[in-house]
Every structure is written in structure tokens, then in C-alpha cells.
């Protein structure tokens, strides 16, 4: 028999990396506040990278945070980290938004990258950020293209294969090579 005192609630819980997921799933409001503080910059950065319009990005960040909170019971830890889940939710939201907008405007689905690039000039970019932003450029061009199309524009491998006339096997192997190269870059600074 083993007795443990750990379960006794002796003081109010502080949200930490360790209890974040549990408290988030339970609907503890402090957990969303913690998530916002820790991840909103990364999510906002991805939104801007995908939709390329600051005003729109603000609205999308708003919607995405609400969605994260609303779908908190859908997060399944066995499928990946909370951050990965939020990133994918954010990417999908942006891509869906742009596609429906593109459809409404009677544009071709794929012309989203032509949307106005209107970042405010007063935004505080730190130099490190600019350096990292060029990160994809460290990859061979054909790998950059695959990551751009799939991760940031929502193409499936089949669409990339058909639209760009690349065999599906090559799309996969380039994706793998791209991620391996990126991983080396992160691990070696």
C-alpha cells in the first residue's frame, strides 16, 4: 500500500507549463491567459505570414484565440503538443479564411499571395526576428517552395504534385529533406 499526500489542495493553483494542459481542458480561465501570454506572439506571427495584412491579422488572432478556447476539449495530447495543435488550428483558420475570401472575390483559389502586403511600418521588429524570417531562404529553392505551399498556403501533396508537375514521392521526400535541414539549423543555432 502506498499513501500519498500530493492530492491535497492546500493553495490556489498557479498555472505552469506542467499543469497547463489539465487546467486548460478543465476550462480554467487563467490557463487561457497563460496561453495568450506564452503563445500569442508566435500565433500572430504565423497569421501575418499567411494572410499578409495586419488589420486582417488582428481580427484573425481574435477569432483564433476564441476558437482555441471553444475547442479546448478537442485537444488530444496523444496527437502532439498543445503548441502544435494551436499552430495547426491557426494555420487552418487562416487558410480557410483566405480561400473563402478568394472564392467570394471570384479570384482563383491560389492567388492569395497577391493580397496586399500592408504591414504597418511602426511595428517593432527585433533584428533577430528579421534574421530568422529569412530562415526558409537557407533551404534549396525546391524545398522552400514545398514548405511555403503546404505549410503556409494549405496545398495538399496531391495538389502540389498536379499543379507543379512534381511526382508525389518527390513532394514527400523534399518535405522530409526540408524539415531535416531546418532541424539542423535550429540545433546548431
Amino acid at each position: 500500500m502506498f499513501c500519498n499526500y500530493d492530492a491535497l489542495p492546500v493553495r490556489r493553483l498557479q498555472i505552469t507549463e506542467e499543469n497547463l494542459i489539465e487546467e486548460f481542458s478543465k476550462g480554467n480561465k487563467a490557463a487561457l491567459s497563460y496561453i495568450y501570454d506564452s503563445y500569442s506572439a508566435a500565433l500572430y506571427g504565423i497569421i501575418i505570414k499567411i494572410v499578409r495584412n495586419e488589420e486582417l491579422s488582428q481580427d484573425i488572432l481574435h477569432d483564433v484565440i476564441i476558437k482555441i478556447w471553444k475547442k479546448r476539449n478537442h485537444y488530444n495530447q496523444s496527437k502532439g503538443s498543445l503548441y502544435t495543435w494551436m499552430l495547426n488550428l491557426t494555420r487552418n483558420h487562416c487558410i480557410d479564411y483566405l480561400r473563402s475570401k478568394a472564392n467570394r472575390n471570384d479570384l482563383q483559389n491560389r492567388e492569395i499571395s497577391n493580397f496586399v502586403y500592408s504591414l504597418e511600418s511602426n511595428r517593432k521588429f527585433d533584428p533577430q526576428h528579421i534574421g530568422l524570417n529569412e530562415l526558409l531562404k537557407k533551404l534549396p529553392e525546391e524545398q522552400q517552395q514545398i514548405i511555403q505551399l503546404s505549410y503556409f498556403e494549405g496545398y495538399t501533396q496531391k495538389e502540389i504534385s498536379e499543379d507543379y508537375n512534381i511526382p508525389i514521392g518527390t513532394v514527400k521526400s523534399r518535405t522530409k529533406a526540408a524539415l531535416e535541414k531546418l532541424r539542423k539549423i535550429f540545433n546548431h543555432g
Partner: peptide, 23 residues
């Protein structure tokens, strides 16, 4: 994990006054 690292590289701080409104 690599994609998480990649995404962090694009991080831009939202304006501080948005937080309360969004939450």
C-alpha cells in the same frame, strides 16, 4: 518540433491592449 521552432521564428508581439478584449 521543427515546425514549432520555425513558427517561433516568425513571432511578432500583438499590441498589449488586445489581450483583455480577446480574452
Amino acid at each position: 518540433k521543427t515546425l514549432e521552432d520555425l513558427s517561433r521564428a516568425y513571432a511578432i508581439n500583438p499590441k498589449p491592449e488586445w489581450k483583455n478584449k480577446i480574452l
